[in-house]
Design a protein around this nucleic acid. Sequence first.
DNA 1: CCACCCTCCCCCACTTTTCCCCACTCTTCA
DNA 2: TGAAGAGTGGGGAAAAGTGGGGGAGGGTGG
Lengths: 147, 147
Amino acid sequence: MGFFRGRFLHSLDTKGRVAIPQRFREAMDAGREEIRLVMTVDPEGCLVVYPEGAWTELERKWEELPQMNDDLKTYLRFMVGWASEGVLDRQGRILVPPPLRDYAGLEHEVWFVGLLHKFEIWNGERLGTATGPEKVRSVTQKLSGLF
Amino acid sequence: MGFFRGRFLHSLDTKGRVAIPQRFREAMDAGREEIRLVMTVDPEGCLVVYPEGAWTELERKWEELPQMNDDLKTYLRFMVGWASEGVLDRQGRILVPPPLRDYAGLEHEVWFVGLLHKFEIWNGERLGTATGPEKVRSVTQKLSGLF
DNA sequence: CCACCCTCCCCCACTTTTCCCCACTCTTCA
DNA sequence: TGAAGAGTGGGGAAAAGTGGGGGAGGGTGG
Protein backbone atom coordinates (compact mmCIF):
# COMPACT_ATOMS: atom_id res chain seq x y z
CA MET A 1 0.00 0.00 0.00
CA GLY A 2 1.57 3.25 -1.18
CA PHE A 3 1.41 6.64 0.49
CA PHE A 4 -1.07 9.38 -0.24
CA ARG A 5 0.59 12.67 -1.20
CA GLY A 6 -0.33 15.98 -2.72
CA ARG A 7 -3.46 18.00 -3.23
CA PHE A 8 -6.07 17.83 -5.97
CA LEU A 9 -9.08 19.94 -6.83
CA HIS A 10 -12.12 17.92 -7.88
CA SER A 11 -15.81 18.56 -8.11
CA LEU A 12 -18.74 17.10 -6.26
CA ASP A 13 -21.56 16.53 -8.74
CA THR A 14 -25.25 17.14 -8.15
CA LYS A 15 -25.69 13.60 -6.86
CA GLY A 16 -23.01 14.04 -4.23
CA ARG A 17 -20.31 11.99 -5.91
CA VAL A 18 -16.58 12.80 -6.27
CA ALA A 19 -13.89 11.11 -8.24
CA ILE A 20 -10.95 9.97 -6.12
CA PRO A 21 -7.69 11.29 -7.63
CA GLN A 22 -6.05 8.69 -9.81
CA ARG A 23 -2.83 8.94 -7.80
CA PHE A 24 -4.71 7.94 -4.67
CA ARG A 25 -6.44 5.09 -6.43
CA GLU A 26 -3.09 3.79 -7.57
CA ALA A 27 -1.80 3.96 -4.02
CA MET A 28 -4.61 1.68 -2.87
CA ASP A 29 -4.98 -0.57 -5.82
CA ALA A 30 -2.92 -3.70 -5.44
CA GLY A 31 -4.36 -4.99 -8.69
CA ARG A 32 -7.71 -5.57 -7.06
CA GLU A 33 -10.77 -4.52 -8.93
CA GLU A 34 -12.82 -3.44 -5.93
CA ILE A 35 -11.50 -0.64 -3.77
CA ARG A 36 -13.23 -0.24 -0.41
CA LEU A 37 -12.68 2.67 1.90
CA VAL A 38 -14.07 4.27 5.01
CA MET A 39 -14.80 7.96 5.27
CA THR A 40 -15.30 9.83 8.53
CA VAL A 41 -14.89 13.30 9.97
CA ASP A 42 -12.08 15.22 11.65
CA PRO A 43 -12.60 17.83 14.39
CA GLU A 44 -10.87 20.39 12.15
CA GLY A 45 -13.92 20.35 9.91
CA CYS A 46 -12.89 18.11 7.05
CA LEU A 47 -13.48 14.51 6.06
CA VAL A 48 -10.87 11.78 6.49
CA VAL A 49 -10.67 8.74 4.28
CA TYR A 50 -8.97 5.46 5.16
CA PRO A 51 -8.43 2.44 2.98
CA GLU A 52 -10.55 -0.31 4.49
CA GLY A 53 -7.58 -2.19 5.92
CA ALA A 54 -6.21 0.79 7.81
CA TRP A 55 -9.63 1.48 9.25
CA THR A 56 -10.35 -2.02 10.54
CA GLU A 57 -6.97 -1.95 12.20
CA LEU A 58 -8.08 1.14 14.12
CA GLU A 59 -11.31 -0.56 15.08
CA ARG A 60 -9.46 -3.54 16.42
CA LYS A 61 -7.52 -1.24 18.75
CA TRP A 62 -10.67 0.51 19.95
CA GLU A 63 -12.38 -2.78 20.69
CA GLU A 64 -9.76 -3.71 23.23
CA LEU A 65 -10.16 -0.56 25.28
CA PRO A 66 -12.40 -0.29 28.37
CA GLN A 67 -15.87 0.22 26.94
CA MET A 68 -17.27 1.95 30.03
CA ASN A 69 -14.88 4.88 29.69
CA ASP A 70 -16.93 8.00 28.97
CA ASP A 71 -14.20 9.78 27.07
CA LEU A 72 -13.76 6.80 24.83
CA LYS A 73 -17.48 6.69 24.20
CA THR A 74 -17.45 10.35 23.18
CA TYR A 75 -14.53 9.69 20.89
CA LEU A 76 -16.13 6.66 19.27
CA ARG A 77 -19.45 8.42 18.86
CA PHE A 78 -17.48 10.87 16.81
CA MET A 79 -15.14 8.66 14.80
CA VAL A 80 -17.33 5.60 14.34
CA GLY A 81 -20.57 7.52 14.53
CA TRP A 82 -19.72 9.46 11.41
CA ALA A 83 -18.03 6.66 9.53
CA SER A 84 -19.33 5.62 6.16
CA GLU A 85 -18.00 2.70 4.18
CA GLY A 86 -18.11 2.80 0.46
CA VAL A 87 -16.95 1.18 -2.72
CA LEU A 88 -15.69 3.08 -5.73
CA ASP A 89 -17.91 2.91 -8.79
CA ARG A 90 -16.59 2.04 -12.24
CA GLN A 91 -15.50 5.63 -12.75
CA GLY A 92 -13.51 5.67 -9.52
CA ARG A 93 -16.02 7.84 -7.71
CA ILE A 94 -17.53 7.60 -4.28
CA LEU A 95 -20.78 8.91 -2.90
CA VAL A 96 -20.41 11.32 0.01
CA PRO A 97 -23.45 10.85 2.26
CA PRO A 98 -25.40 14.06 2.93
CA PRO A 99 -24.54 14.27 6.65
CA LEU A 100 -20.83 14.17 5.86
CA ARG A 101 -21.24 16.68 3.06
CA ASP A 102 -22.90 19.07 5.50
CA TYR A 103 -20.39 18.51 8.26
CA ALA A 104 -17.45 19.39 6.05
CA GLY A 105 -19.27 22.20 4.27
CA LEU A 106 -18.62 20.68 0.87
CA GLU A 107 -20.07 22.51 -2.12
CA HIS A 108 -19.13 21.96 -5.71
CA GLU A 109 -15.37 22.36 -5.38
CA VAL A 110 -13.52 20.05 -3.02
CA TRP A 111 -9.84 19.56 -2.27
CA PHE A 112 -8.16 16.23 -1.71
CA VAL A 113 -5.10 16.31 0.54
CA GLY A 114 -2.80 13.30 0.87
CA LEU A 115 -1.63 12.45 4.39
CA LEU A 116 0.53 9.32 4.11
CA HIS A 117 -1.75 6.49 5.25
CA LYS A 118 -4.98 8.41 4.81
CA PHE A 119 -6.25 11.42 2.93
CA GLU A 120 -8.61 14.28 3.62
CA ILE A 121 -11.38 16.05 1.74
CA TRP A 122 -11.75 19.78 2.34
CA ASN A 123 -13.87 22.75 1.56
CA GLY A 124 -11.42 25.17 -0.08
CA GLU A 125 -11.82 28.07 2.34
CA ARG A 126 -11.47 25.92 5.42
CA LEU A 127 -8.38 24.29 4.01
CA GLY A 128 -6.85 27.71 3.47
CA THR A 129 -7.38 28.90 7.01
CA ALA A 130 -6.49 25.59 8.63
CA THR A 131 -3.22 25.08 6.81
CA GLY A 132 -1.82 28.51 6.00
CA PRO A 133 1.95 29.02 6.23
CA GLU A 134 1.61 31.27 9.32
CA LYS A 135 -0.18 28.58 11.24
CA VAL A 136 2.39 26.00 10.24
CA ARG A 137 5.27 28.25 11.27
CA SER A 138 3.91 28.56 14.80
CA VAL A 139 3.31 24.85 15.08
CA THR A 140 6.72 23.86 13.78
CA GLN A 141 8.42 25.40 16.81
CA LYS A 142 6.51 23.23 19.22
CA LEU A 143 7.26 20.15 17.20
CA SER A 144 10.99 20.66 17.12
CA GLY A 145 11.46 18.46 20.14
CA LEU A 146 9.91 15.49 18.41
CA PHE A 147 12.21 15.05 15.44
CA MET B 1 -21.70 -10.11 13.22
CA GLY B 2 -20.55 -6.95 11.50
CA PHE B 3 -19.92 -3.59 13.07
CA PHE B 4 -22.32 -0.69 13.33
CA ARG B 5 -20.94 2.49 11.79
CA GLY B 6 -22.18 5.85 10.65
CA ARG B 7 -25.14 8.08 11.31
CA PHE B 8 -28.53 8.08 9.67
CA LEU B 9 -31.49 10.42 9.95
CA HIS B 10 -34.79 8.56 10.06
CA SER B 11 -38.28 9.43 11.15
CA LEU B 12 -40.44 8.10 13.89
CA ASP B 13 -43.95 7.72 12.49
CA THR B 14 -47.19 8.51 14.29
CA LYS B 15 -47.35 4.94 15.57
CA GLY B 16 -43.96 5.19 17.22
CA ARG B 17 -42.09 3.05 14.72
CA VAL B 18 -38.68 3.68 13.13
CA ALA B 19 -36.95 1.87 10.33
CA ILE B 20 -33.54 0.52 11.34
CA PRO B 21 -30.97 1.65 8.75
CA GLN B 22 -30.34 -1.04 6.18
CA ARG B 23 -26.61 -0.97 6.93
CA PHE B 24 -27.34 -1.88 10.53
CA ARG B 25 -29.73 -4.63 9.54
CA GLU B 26 -27.05 -6.12 7.33
CA ALA B 27 -24.59 -6.01 10.20
CA MET B 28 -26.94 -8.14 12.31
CA ASP B 29 -28.41 -10.37 9.69
CA ALA B 30 -26.49 -13.61 9.41
CA GLY B 31 -29.06 -14.80 6.89
CA ARG B 32 -31.64 -15.21 9.61
CA GLU B 33 -35.11 -14.02 8.90
CA GLU B 34 -35.93 -12.77 12.37
CA ILE B 35 -33.80 -10.07 13.90
CA ARG B 36 -34.21 -9.60 17.64
CA LEU B 37 -32.71 -6.78 19.60
CA VAL B 38 -32.76 -5.16 23.00
CA MET B 39 -33.19 -1.44 23.49
CA THR B 40 -32.37 0.43 26.67
CA VAL B 41 -31.26 3.86 27.81
CA ASP B 42 -27.93 5.62 28.24
CA PRO B 43 -27.17 8.23 30.92
CA GLU B 44 -26.24 10.69 28.15
CA GLY B 45 -29.91 10.91 27.24
CA CYS B 46 -30.17 8.61 24.26
CA LEU B 47 -31.30 5.06 23.63
CA VAL B 48 -28.87 2.17 23.14
CA VAL B 49 -29.66 -0.85 21.03
CA TYR B 50 -27.90 -4.21 21.22
CA PRO B 51 -28.38 -7.23 19.01
CA GLU B 52 -29.92 -9.91 21.22
CA GLY B 53 -26.71 -11.93 21.39
CA ALA B 54 -24.59 -9.04 22.62
CA TRP B 55 -27.17 -8.21 25.24
CA THR B 56 -27.45 -11.69 26.73
CA GLU B 57 -23.68 -11.76 26.93
CA LEU B 58 -23.81 -8.61 29.05
CA GLU B 59 -26.45 -10.20 31.26
CA ARG B 60 -24.26 -13.22 31.79
CA LYS B 61 -21.45 -10.95 33.00
CA TRP B 62 -23.76 -9.06 35.34
CA GLU B 63 -25.00 -12.29 36.89
CA GLU B 64 -21.52 -13.23 37.99
CA LEU B 65 -20.90 -9.99 39.84
CA PRO B 66 -21.54 -9.60 43.59
CA GLN B 67 -25.27 -8.99 43.75
CA MET B 68 -25.15 -7.17 47.09
CA ASN B 69 -23.15 -4.30 45.68
CA ASP B 70 -25.30 -1.18 45.82
CA ASP B 71 -23.59 0.50 42.91
CA LEU B 72 -24.22 -2.51 40.76
CA LYS B 73 -27.86 -2.55 41.81
CA THR B 74 -28.23 1.09 40.83
CA TYR B 75 -26.58 0.39 37.53
CA LEU B 76 -28.75 -2.63 36.78
CA ARG B 77 -31.95 -0.87 37.79
CA PHE B 78 -31.05 1.56 35.08
CA MET B 79 -29.81 -0.69 32.31
CA VAL B 80 -32.09 -3.65 32.84
CA GLY B 81 -34.99 -1.69 34.22
CA TRP B 82 -35.40 0.23 31.02
CA ALA B 83 -34.60 -2.62 28.67
CA SER B 84 -37.13 -3.60 26.07
CA GLU B 85 -36.79 -6.45 23.62
CA GLY B 86 -38.24 -6.21 20.18
CA VAL B 87 -38.41 -7.85 16.80
CA LEU B 88 -38.20 -6.05 13.51
CA ASP B 89 -41.35 -6.06 11.43
CA ARG B 90 -41.32 -7.04 7.78
CA GLN B 91 -40.33 -3.52 6.76
CA GLY B 92 -37.33 -3.57 9.07
CA ARG B 93 -38.93 -1.26 11.61
CA ILE B 94 -39.11 -1.46 15.35
CA LEU B 95 -41.58 -0.02 17.79
CA VAL B 96 -40.08 2.32 20.38
CA PRO B 97 -42.09 1.98 23.60
CA PRO B 98 -43.48 5.30 24.86
CA PRO B 99 -41.38 5.41 28.06
CA LEU B 100 -38.19 5.10 26.05
CA ARG B 101 -39.42 7.63 23.53
CA ASP B 102 -39.99 10.11 26.34
CA TYR B 103 -36.70 9.39 28.06
CA ALA B 104 -34.70 10.14 24.94
CA GLY B 105 -36.88 13.08 23.90
CA LEU B 106 -37.58 11.55 20.52
CA GLU B 107 -39.87 13.51 18.24
CA HIS B 108 -40.33 12.97 14.56
CA GLU B 109 -36.69 13.15 13.52
CA VAL B 110 -34.27 10.70 15.09
CA TRP B 111 -30.60 9.97 14.46
CA PHE B 112 -29.06 6.53 14.45
CA VAL B 113 -25.40 6.43 15.46
CA GLY B 114 -23.29 3.31 14.97
CA LEU B 115 -20.90 2.38 17.78
CA LEU B 116 -19.22 -0.88 16.69
CA HIS B 117 -21.04 -3.53 18.74
CA LYS B 118 -24.13 -1.49 19.45
CA PHE B 119 -25.88 1.59 18.15
CA GLU B 120 -27.66 4.57 19.64
CA ILE B 121 -30.81 6.52 18.85
CA TRP B 122 -30.71 10.26 19.48
CA ASN B 123 -32.78 13.37 19.45
CA GLY B 124 -30.95 15.64 17.00
CA GLU B 125 -30.23 18.54 19.36
CA ARG B 126 -28.91 16.33 22.13
CA LEU B 127 -26.67 14.54 19.69
CA GLY B 128 -25.24 17.83 18.55
CA THR B 129 -24.26 19.01 22.00
CA ALA B 130 -22.99 15.61 23.12
CA THR B 131 -20.69 15.05 20.18
CA GLY B 132 -19.62 18.42 18.82
CA PRO B 133 -16.07 18.81 17.49
CA GLU B 134 -15.02 20.99 20.48
CA LYS B 135 -15.99 18.29 22.92
CA VAL B 136 -14.13 15.69 20.93
CA ARG B 137 -10.98 17.77 20.75
CA SER B 138 -10.83 18.11 24.53
CA VAL B 139 -11.46 14.42 24.99
CA THR B 140 -8.83 13.38 22.49
CA GLN B 141 -6.12 14.93 24.62
CA LYS B 142 -7.04 12.81 27.62
CA LEU B 143 -7.31 9.68 25.55
CA SER B 144 -3.89 9.99 24.02
CA GLY B 145 -2.49 7.91 26.85
CA LEU B 146 -4.74 4.99 25.99
CA PHE B 147 -3.67 4.46 22.42
C1' DC C 1 -67.72 -12.86 32.32
C1' DC C 2 -68.35 -9.93 28.50
C1' DA C 3 -67.72 -5.89 25.67
C1' DC C 4 -64.92 -2.31 24.49
C1' DC C 5 -60.71 0.07 23.44
C1' DC C 6 -56.13 0.56 22.47
C1' DT C 7 -51.88 -1.19 21.02
C1' DC C 8 -49.22 -3.78 18.00
C1' DC C 9 -48.12 -5.89 13.77
C1' DC C 10 -49.18 -7.47 9.22
C1' DC C 11 -49.77 -5.89 4.51
C1' DC C 12 -49.83 -2.71 0.52
C1' DA C 13 -48.58 1.51 -1.95
C1' DC C 14 -45.82 5.59 -2.67
C1' DT C 15 -41.53 8.59 -2.68
C1' DT C 16 -36.77 9.29 -2.46
C1' DT C 17 -32.18 7.91 -2.69
C1' DT C 18 -28.56 5.11 -4.31
C1' DC C 19 -25.80 3.05 -7.59
C1' DC C 20 -24.94 0.96 -12.01
C1' DC C 21 -24.04 2.00 -16.75
C1' DC C 22 -23.03 4.75 -20.84
C1' DA C 23 -21.43 8.82 -23.16
C1' DC C 24 -18.92 13.15 -23.49
C1' DT C 25 -14.96 16.51 -22.67
C1' DC C 26 -10.40 17.86 -21.56
C1' DT C 27 -5.82 17.07 -20.76
C1' DT C 28 -1.53 14.53 -21.54
C1' DC C 29 1.74 12.27 -24.10
C1' DA C 30 3.64 10.07 -27.99
C1' DT D 1 -2.62 15.33 -34.39
C1' DG D 2 -4.37 11.21 -32.83
C1' DA D 3 -5.03 8.02 -28.94
C1' DA D 4 -5.32 7.02 -24.21
C1' DG D 5 -6.36 8.24 -19.69
C1' DA D 6 -8.70 11.15 -16.33
C1' DG D 7 -12.62 13.65 -14.75
C1' DT D 8 -17.71 14.96 -15.29
C1' DG D 9 -22.62 14.54 -16.23
C1' DG D 10 -26.97 12.23 -16.55
C1' DG D 11 -30.65 8.24 -17.50
C1' DG D 12 -32.78 4.54 -15.39
C1' DA D 13 -33.42 0.34 -12.54
C1' DA D 14 -33.30 -1.20 -7.96
C1' DA D 15 -33.32 -0.61 -3.19
C1' DA D 16 -34.36 1.87 1.01
C1' DG D 17 -37.39 4.61 3.78
C1' DT D 18 -42.27 6.38 4.85
C1' DG D 19 -47.11 6.40 5.58
C1' DG D 20 -51.53 4.41 6.45
C1' DG D 21 -55.58 0.71 6.50
C1' DG D 22 -57.17 -3.10 8.94
C1' DG D 23 -57.26 -7.34 11.81
C1' DA D 24 -55.70 -9.90 15.95
C1' DG D 25 -54.60 -9.88 20.73
C1' DG D 26 -54.31 -8.27 25.40
C1' DG D 27 -55.76 -5.10 29.07
C1' DT D 28 -59.49 -2.48 31.42
C1' DG D 29 -63.94 -1.36 33.21
C1' DG D 30 -68.56 -2.39 33.84
